[in-house]
Design a protein around this nucleic acid. Structure first.
Length: 564
RNA sequence: GGGCCCGUGGCUUAGCCCGGAUAAAGCACCGGCCUUCUAAGCCGGGAAUCGCGGGUUCGAAUCCCGCCGGGUCCGCCA
């Protein structure tokens, strides 16, 4: 609803500026603590008009014509150089009605293919992949709420040397079937890697496997597929536990076998600036010092070339492509854009996140130095269980486990997405496992409180069939009631901002602030014990809060328990 | 060495793209609030030369230049 209010303010202000014949570039609207929305336009007009901004603001206000009917604006006043607008009762009422009517984007926008996680199938997901996965997944959810048709893809790097190492190792070392599949694969990978490092003959065998796989040798392909499938099944199980699912898994080897990689190389030879180093092919890209190798001396393909073919394929199937990449892929992403431009493919958009490190140093699957996402989920759920157990002696164990799972995974997801992606994270076990901080549990708790009130209301027979059917919105006059409605009204602008700027942490911030404001309302305004009409109105508000809280939690991929 | 990113109370961050009204939160610390819908909550307190130095501007955490500290990339790896 806030966006509608903003639109109306824009209209009214624009008219006033024209009527007063001011030439402006921007309305300079901003949300502020002093008004529901305010304009700083008088500042920039002051320069050209050579008059003090206060005078100009005053003058603009006299030209403002706020409609008498069907408006969301209560009034507009100048406050020094600022022009402050505030919302009226209709705005508050329409906000609540709108929420009860359901939160769906009216606008239908284009198709977006978003690629995220895409961890190599050589072991389980670790904490670094977790940031990628959660950022990507929240983005997917936000974009869907914003009206886009979103397809999520996991790009499987099945042609890398590390997979060849696993395939090689699988011949000599048995998978531990007692373990989760991806962990068993990692064990073989780590052990095989050690063997290969110590013996260069082994290395040659690995290279031979790589060559035969790329050539499509059926026997080798089958062995590869088994390993990849095995590892991926474990990874998918972890993702599922995190409430993440991909629509499509795309194997990079497909592009080699289909001849798409070859086609890309041929086309780049025509359209790009190609250099040769022996029989290897290098592509010189504008603005990038380092030439990009697009084909090895032995004729086999490289990751970046295969990625070009992948993006070309995606391009045909969508309006926008978004890739969630780690900081280490930044140069690659620039090369990708430049090379794709040569191929006439639209530029992908990137969400680049900085790394997660451990106090003990950087992460490495190969060296076996990582915290697996599984371990982390296990521990955080256990911690959450202890908290639930402490507070809810009345519940049976199954119910407690259920809540612990939602709270634990929620806390983990929130921790991954709350910080701006370009901020480096030092992962601290205790901090991430701390359920009490103002993270997911705090928001979930507010939701549970709202549910609790509604549950009690129903038990006492207070809730009618149509919650918004007949209530008097003007009874909601308390400061915390109005603040809460206003916060609820911002949902649309938060979705819009997070979607257009691809900044998922804005949703996390909004969720926390909304919970905070709901808690204030909860403390200030008794609902069940209020007088009849007021209770009716407050129940509408509580239900609205419940809906928006569960919506933002859903956007964050966090489950919303009805009791905690 | 070059490119990109980060540097905001003791700690973790928001705000920076798009400059404006007392720099906003959480954690930790200190003190208060459960006979009323869940205290995983609420209220109050102390605590910041917004890395440093210049510049632009009526006005800079925000824009520009330089420097310092940290990260990351600069593979015929992925």
């Amino acid at each position: 609803m806030f966006l509608e209010f903003k639109k109306e303010v824009e209209c009214v202000l624009k008219d006033a500026l024209e009527k007063a014949s001011y030439k402006y570039e921007d309305l300079e609207l901003e949300e502020s603590e002093h008004a529901d929305i305010s304009s700083r336009v008088a500042f920039s007009l002051a320069r050209t008009q050579k008059k003090p901004p206060e005078i100009i603001a005053e003058d603009i206000v006299t030209h403002l014509e706020i409609p008498v009917e069907d408006t969301l604006i209560a009034n507009a006043v100048s406050a020094g150089p600022y022009i402050n607008f505030s919302v009226n009762d209709l705005f508050l009422h329409k906000t609540l009605i709108g929420i009860e009517g359901g939160i769906v984007s009216l606008e239908k926008r284009g198709k977006i293919i978003i690629e995220h996680t895409s961890a190599n199938p050589d072991g389980p997901l670790h904490i670094g992949h977790l940031r990628n996965a959660v950022i990507g997944d929240v983005l997917v959810r936000v974009l869907k709420y914003a009206g886009y048709n979103v397809e999520t893809q996991y790009y499987v790097n099945d042609m890398g040397r590390q997979i060849a190492v696993v395939v090689w190792g699988a011949e000599r070392i048995a998978f531990d079937n007692a373990k989760k599949a991806d962990h068993a694969v990692a064990d073989v990978y780590i052990a095989a890697n050690r063997m290969v490092e110590e013996n260069s003959d082994f290395l040659k065998e690995v290279d031979e496997l790589l060559r035969r796989y790329e050539a499509g040798d059926p026997e080798v392909v089958q062995r590869y597929e088994e390993v990849v499938k095995k590892c991926l099944s474990g990874i998918q199980a972890s993702l599922e536990r995190l409430q993440i699912r991909h629509d499509v898994f795309v194997l990079e080897s497909e592009f080699v076998r289909r001849g798409a990689v070859e086609a890309v190389i041929e086309e780049l030879k025509q359209k790009g600036e190609i250099k040769r180093d022996g029989s290897a092919l290098l592509l010189q890209l504008k603005g990038i010092e380092k030439a990009l190798v697009i084909q090895r001396t032995d004729g086999t393909s490289l990751y970046t070339t295969r990625d070009l073919a992948y993006h070309r394929w995606k391009d045909k199937n969508c309006d926008r492509m978004i890739d969630v990449f780690g900081k280490d892929h930044e140069l690659v992403s620039q090369q990708l854009v430049k090379a794709l431009e040569l191929l006439g493919v639209k530029a992908p958009e990137f969400v680049i996140f900085a790394f997660v490190s451990l106090p003990s140093g950087s992460l490495s699957t190969r060296a076996g130095r990582y915290i697996s996402a599984d371990d982390l989920m296990e521990k955080i759920e256990e911690r959450a269980y202890n908290e639930v157990d402490k507070r809810r002696t009345d519940l049976d164990d199954g119910k407690k486990r259920e809540i612990a799972r939602k709270v634990g995974i929620g806390a983990l997801r929130y921790d991954m997405v709350k910080v701006s992606p370009d901020k480096h994270i030092m992962f601290d076990f205790d901090e991430a496992l701390d359920i009490e901080k103002k993270g997911a549990p705090f928001v979930q708790y507010s939701h549970a409180r709202a549910c609790s009130i509604l549950r009690a209301a129903e038990e006492r027979g207070f809730v009618g069939q149509s919650p918004t059917g007949d209530y008097d919105p003007t009874l909601l006059r308390e400061r915390s009631e109005i603040d809460l409605i206003k916060k609820l009204s911002k949902l649309d602008s938060i979705i819009e901002e997070a979607a257009s700027e691809l900044r998922p942490h804005l949703v996390a911030k909004y969720a926390r602030e909304l919970a905070e404001i709901f808690n204030l309302f909860y403390k200030d305004c008794p609902v069940l014990n209020a007088e009849d009409e007021l209770r009716k109105a407050r129940l509408v508000l509580v239900d609205g809060a419940r809906i928006v809280l569960s919506t933002v939690l859903d956007m964050l991929g966090i489950e919303a328990p009805e009791e905690m």
